[in-house]
Design a protein around this nucleic acid. Structure first.
Lengths: 224, 224
DNA sequence: CTAATTTTGTACTGATTAATAAAGAATTAA
DNA sequence: TTAATTCTTTATTAATCAGTACAAAATTAG
């Protein structure tokens, strides 16, 4: 079992400096001693790619060393364990993703276009990479949320933030008259969320882009 | 890599006889020699439970021996490999599940009630077990579909069968006047499928039954 | 310069992995 | 009874697993 060592998923933007590590989720900057030879962000990105492709269990520490370019000593010195590196990778994925998603929903322009942008973005994510590995956070949640509190917590946070942004966007649409006042906002949010996550799951497994586009359009039709 | 050794996901109902094995997906019945001491279905059910709870990678052959009660020799003699047993477990889950789902959609009574029954059944599945392990096939697809042709094939087949049954049910509803003729059947099928799979994913991760019920109701409202 | 500190590379740990080998037990066929 | 067949039990394999120990290397502080 793992303790909840991801400290806070909030918007601590890019951390692309040299010579830092994350021990217990706390950023450490060393002042003396031999300097690190790697960029923290590059290592976490590489780890993220690997966990994304393989999942947690099917990803060995040797794989991680190879893909990050670090030796075992460096990797364990900097990140402590496979699981802590996993948490960093998930956290980074979460931060980048939620920022992109919320931004789309806060854009100018018709609400319908904002929602479509989100769906199109998800489809592009799912079909642009030939490895078709879907959404790292969904994969992580289904693989591990039931027994890994860090994963459960981060996924919940991600979903909650997306849901709040959707709520705001739909309310805006109702105020502007783009969406009928008769509809209940929570119902519309549910409808979108369900279709969004269903879309992403089916994309990985079915690998049918036309179907995905049709699903996205059906979702918008149901809301507007 | 694995070859596609699941022969056919079609409706070969229950196979609960003694002394049978599955080698390359072909049922073998021995006529001489020492008889087996276990029921094939019981072993596959036990394996299914374990794969369901742990996933494929996190499930060791020793775990499988313990839970099925078989020794290593018996297990390997009967099923050949961890992966072949996994295929049997998935196939069994698929057969039981698709039969239940299609049956609900073919029931008598209003179409809306049939669709609600399906959603309620999914919610009950997701929340009745304290292990909250969701749908084994979805878990398997997200963990392995990209690199395991047997998993990819079976999941596709499962989704296709559900989709066809939904298509028939919705067409029936349009004929009877329960659903507007104006709506496009593929759109309504997409809408339901998206919400159904999204619901199941969010259930595992969010573990919020009220929210699930509300999502289900929102789905029905969007269709009727 | 020396001492203190940190990172790096390598060798190594004990545990666990999926799978196999082989001998004995239980059955059928003749 | 004997031979052939199949299943069960146990021991064992080689590989891999996550993680550690430790010395050499590279830096800062004084």
């Amino acid at each position: 079992m793992y303790s909840m060592s991801i400290f806070d998923g909030s918007v601590q933007k890019y951390y692309d400096d040299f010579s830092t590590g994350y021990r217990n989720g706390v950023k450490e900057v060393s002042k003396s001693g031999r300097p690190r030879e790697f960029k923290d962000t590059a290592v976490i990105d590489a780890a993220m790619e690997l966990f994304w492709t393989n999942g947690y269990e099917a990803c060995s520490t040797e794989d991680l060393c190879k893909h990050t370019g670090l030796g075992r000593g460096s990797l364990y010195n900097a990140y402590g364990s496979k699981h802590e590196l996993y948490e960093q990778a998930l956290l980074r994925y979460h931060q980048i993703g939620i920022e992109a998603q919320v931004e789309m929903l806060q854009n100018l322009g018709p609400i319908k276009d904002r929602l479509r942008a989100l769906l199109d973005w998800a489809i592009e994510e799912d079909f642009s990479n030939e490895k078709r590995r879907g959404c790292l956070l969904i994969n992580a949640a289904l693989e591990r949320a039931q027994r890994d509190p860090a994963v459960e917590r981060l996924f919940k946070q991600h979903v909650d933030l997306l849901e709040e942004a959707l709520h705001r966007a739909i309310d805006t649409g109702k105020e502007s008259g783009e969406i009928s006042q008769q509809r209940q906002t929570p119902d519309l949010v549910s409808l979108f969320m369900g279709n969004y996550y269903g879309l992403r799951v089916l994309n990985v497994a079915m690998q049918n882009r036309e179907r995905a586009v049709q699903m996205a359009e059906a979702t918008l039709t149901a809301i507007f």
